[in-house]
Design a protein around this nucleic acid. Structure first.
Length: 891
RNA sequence: GGGUCGUUAGCUCAGUUGGUCAGAGCGCCUGGUUUACACCCAGGAGGUCCCCGGUUCAAGUCCGGGACGACCCACCA
């Protein structure tokens, strides 16, 4: 690019302003395709970013703005370092949030039994209230429902993109993707089929955590604990040795009494030694169950002896499996008691169970307690407690264990052997470079604590269907052992519509035919593949294809709250699929806390929507707030910081206008700097460039470690000193009003141009709009595609001048200014005479810059003398008359 | 119960490998209509660096113990 001299003053705006810069520059960047990935490239030239796609359903959170801004700073730095940046941003529109939003927005709900309706018009559009009551929603077919979901996500994604553009994210929108579109569905299905073939995906009929509201299985990563009130109920079981003695157990789930399959105590518990191997009968239902020993039983909990039911909690599952107990399920998929309990052999027991059939868990508990109170089997006090209960993170009823056939993907939870999958995944965590490094331990903790493989099937509608069918036997029963798969070329498929090879549509569901797997994949089952989705693994995977040029990605930016979910599941998929890490670096951003140090979240009603902030403080102001926060550190929501950022952006505009207004600087023949370094002859000017070289070095070291905050932290104070001290000092000289004449003016103008241009580059990753605006006043192209500044040319221009000169002069300036502040007179007041006392080293500096210092202080007679103190002091001051004040316009 | 992070000025936070590290901004106080900027400028006051030990010539900084706060995980009979 050819260097251009600063344009004449007329090119500079009279009153520069931040208003409207976002729209102005977003349009230009978009039109010029400034952030477009260049496909003609090799992997080593590329810096690729795998951003977790946001869920476009619902409100955009200020946390998005925070984290995405930070990632964008790292990306912009890499672009300026000459990398060919691959920075797509997709939309995670696959899954439950979209379903729920579509239900509210259109006033519908999915009923898969209904037929598809052509040209369907939903009962409402734009609803957002609490019309989610099922009764008010129109039931529609699955296909109609999915069409509405897709319509809604298109609307939402458009508005999100507007916000991100306004924020100044340097995303290549040409490479945007959706996790529910055909390419993503095909990719997800192909990955699953390959997992299936490799034995990494398997089906199993087992007790799983089940949400009775959504009627779907729920994976470990989607569960959370909530404190709920409960109570210990003491129930007496009767010994069968003829003594009629009772064994009292304590339970918080008395309603599960009919599902009891055994009692269990610790093998070393002396109180129960005689009972092990014997049997007891349950109260109310009279079912005979064995008393068994197992080390998991805790002598100090409850009564020290527990009833095992199928299933109340994770211990029940363990005991049931390890003690090889029968299954007696009482709770159905709708959370209500099942109609029959055939293992109950007494008529009295059957009559009592009949009262429970069809009841919810809550009602059944009430009824069982009543019955046990009447019969006298409930003994002692009911002890109320508060205890943690597992919930689906989106649900409002406790999870229940339900036995069902589900699909699992290996994730190390069951392979804890040395050198097994779990170890391999922990090792992947070590390979990844974490920013900040301590975040790795969160990953490791989670992997080490996994209780089982990844349950990836969901009994929902809007999502990626399992691309499989099962054979139907001659008896009409589904044969889950016969899994029929489609060829990869046919993906994506919907097995409820498409037909497996070798069958015809009329064989669906008939003996000897086939039946579709009715489930969809966990939304993480697709969103864990974002590097593959964005990188074109399933469409452009050859050595010369896109995937070979961008994968593994360089950077994964995300919040620490989704390390255990998104980050982990993505590592699992890449490990299984590509035998590699999905990315080299993970940059982990913190959370936004409200002023009370609580996490900001929708449910707490303290969420601030970002668009208003961007308008009020300017995108540069908001980005500055994000840029001051370090990676991984939870950060207070602080509009004060945004105001400071806005002030900085305005200052950049004003200072630039001023620095460029002194007239044209000599052109650098070598073209490496904004002006001719040979013209920089004044010691003060050289000291400025020497200091700036140090700043460039520090900022570069910081950014190489992805530490945008540190870079900003060294750049910002330099800039303020540049404005308040340096510019003030050289003002007169730059105008040519100095004894040094034209040579002195040329030196100042060159130094101003060089320093300003370098600072614009240093600020560009953070303050994207104001820097671009200034750049456009006098330079060609965009600041965002310039190279990151280098220290060496600045050092050369400084010609060995010690940067400390700048500090000495700044200190002297403070002393001189203090004279007038203390005297409470205007800084314009002349100083007739002053003696400045400085240590020997500083004295030489002051002598070199004496002319600029006298201009700054309006000093007539300046005497520089050597002193003992380390400080720079003033003596023998004689102030002149303050300038005449103009009379005020009023009063 | 296990793990991780934090505690520095009224507030929000920097303080690399122990040696100008007692810092910045905001807020506060005192001044200034200074032709780049009143969305400004100049000057100033403010701190037992959570506590207790230890290592060292020297400790916000390293080690041990503790307190408080935040988050993740586990426990749910």
């Amino acid at each position: 690019m050819t260097e251009t001299a600063p344009r004449p003053d007329s090119a500079l705006p009279d009153r520069p302003s931040l208003e409207g810069l976002e729209n102005k520059w977003d349009s230009v960047w978009s039109e010029q395709q400034l952030y477009a990935f260049d496909p003609d490239t090799t992997r080593d030239q590329v810096f690729s970013v795998d951003t977790p796609p946001p869920t476009a359903s619902g409100a955009l959170h200020v946390g998005h703005v925070f984290g995405y801004s930070q990632a964008d700073m790292i990306v912009r730095y890499q672009r300026m370092r000459g990398k060919n940046v691959f920075y797509p941003l997709g939309w995670d529109d696959n899954g439950l949030p979209t379903e729920r939003r579509a239900q509210n927005y259109f006033g519908v709900r999915c009923d898969p039994s209904l037929p598809y309706v052509e040209d369907f018009t939903p009962p409402q559009e734009g609803g957002d209230n609490k019309s989610s009551k099922t009764a008010n929603q129109l039931p529609i077919s699955r296909r109609n429902f999915i069409e509405l979901c897709e319509r809604l996500t298109a609307i939402d994604e458009k508005s999100f993109e507007e916000v991100f553009r306004t924020l100044g994210l340097s995303v290549d929108w040409n490479h945007s993707y959706q996790t529910i579109n055909a390419h993503s569905r095909a990719t997800s299905q192909r990955a699953f089929l390959e997992n299936l073939q490799a034995g990494q995906a398997y089906q199993s009929e087992a007790p799983t955590m089940w949400d009775v509201t959504y009627r779907t299985a729920v994976a470990q990563a989607e569960q959370e604990d909530r404190d709920r009130d409960g109570a210990y109920h003491q129930l007496g079981f009767t010994k069968t040795d003829g003594t009629g003695e009772s064994v009292v157990i304590a339970t918080t789930r008395p309603e599960l009494l009919p599902a009891c399959v055994a009692l269990v105590a610790h093998p070393d518990d002396e109180r129960y030694q005689d009972l092990f191997g014997s049997t007891v009968t349950s109260p109310l239902f009279g079912v005979e169950v064995p008393v068994m020993a197992h080390p998991l039983a805790q002598p100090d909990k409850g009564a020290g002896i527990a009833m095992i039911c199928t299933f109340g909690d994770a211990n029940d599952v363990t005991w049931w499996r390890e003690l090889e107990l029968p299954t007696r399920s009482v709770i159905g998929r709708d959370g209500r008691f099942l109609p029959e309990a055939p293992w109950i052999s007494t008529q009295e027991g059957q009559d009592r169970y009949a009262e429970l059939a069809g009841l919810t868990v809550f009602s059944a508990q009430k009824r069982v307690v009543e019955m046990a109170t009447e019969s006298g089997d409930l003994t002692g006090e009911i002890e109320k407690i508060s205890h943690p209960v597992k919930f689906y993170e989106n649900g409002d009823k406790p999870l229940e264990y339900v036995t069902s056939r589900q699909w699992y993907l290996t994730n190390g939870g069951r392979d804890q052997s040395t050198g097994g999958l779990r170890d391999a995944l922990i090792e992947r965590g070590r390979e990844l470079t974490w920013h900040p490094p301590y975040m790795e331990s969160r990953y490791r903790n989670w992997v080490e604590g996994l209780a089982g493989d990844w349950l990836i099937s969901r009994q929902r509608f809007f999502g990626v269907p399992f691309p499989i069918w099962y054979g139907v036997g001659a008896d009409g029963e589904t044969d889950h052992g016969t899994v029929l798969t489609p060829p990869v070329e046919s993906l994506p498929i919907d097995p409820t519509i498409d037909v497996p090879a070798g069958f015809t549509a009329d064989q669906r569901g008939v003996p000897g035919g086939f039946v579709a797997d009715p489930d969809i994949l966990d939304t993480w089952g697709t969103s864990s593949l974002t590097p593959q989705l964005a990188g074109g693994w399933n469409s452009d995977a050859g050595d010369d294809g896109l995937f070979g040029k961008v994968y593994p990605m360089d950077l994964r930016p995300q919040g620490h709250d989704i390390i255990r979910t998104w980050l982990f599941s993505t590592i699992v998929r890449s490990h299984l699929q590509q035998d590699s890490l999905p990315w080299k670096h993970a940059s982990i951003n913190g959370w936004i806390l409200d002023p009370d140090r609580k996490k900001m979240s929708k449910s707490k009603g303290n969420v601030v929507t970002p668009i208003g902030l961007l308008e009020q403080h300017g995108s540069d102001g908001v980005r500055y707030w994000a840029g001051r926060a370090r990676q991984g550190v939870d950060t207070a929501f602080d509009e004060g910081q945004m105001k400071i950022g806005r002030r900085l952006a305005i200052k950049i505009l004003n200072a630039s206008k001023f620095a460029l207004g002194f007239g044209a600087a000599p052109v650098d023949p070598a073209g490496r700097l904004a002006a001719d370094p040979a013209a920089v002859t004044d010691p003060l000017d050289r000291a400025l460039l020497a200091r700036l070289a140090q700043v460039v070095e520090q900022a570069t070291v910081a950014f190489d470690d992805m530490d945008y905050a540190r870079s900003l932290e060294v750049t910002e104070p330099f800039f303020w000193a540049f404005c308040d001290d340096y510019i003030e000092l050289v003002k007169e000289r730059a105008h040519g009003n100095s004894a040094s004449g034209e040579a002195g003016a040329a030196s100042a103008r060159a130094a101003l141009a060089i320093a300003l241009e370098v600072q614009l580059r240093l600020f560009a990753p953070v303050i994207v709009f104001a820097t671009e605006e200034v750049w456009s006043w006098w330079r060609g192209g965009s600041v965002h595609t310039q190279s990151w500044p280098q220290a060496a040319p600045l050092q050369d221009a400084a010609a060995g001048q010690d940067a400390a000169l700048l500090d000495s002069v700044a200190q002297a300036a403070i002393s001189v200014r203090r004279i007038k502040s203390d005297a409470k007179v205007s800084q314009k007041t002349p100083i007739l005479r002053v003696k400045v006392v400085a240590p020997q080293t500083a004295l030489a500096h002051l002598e070199a810059a004496a002319a600029d210092l006298t201009a700054l202080g309006r000093i007539d007679a300046l005497e520089l003398v050597s002193g003992e103190s380390d400080d720079i002091l003033t003596e023998d001051v004689e102030l002149g008359e303050p300038p005449v004040k103009k009379p005020r316009a009023t009063d």
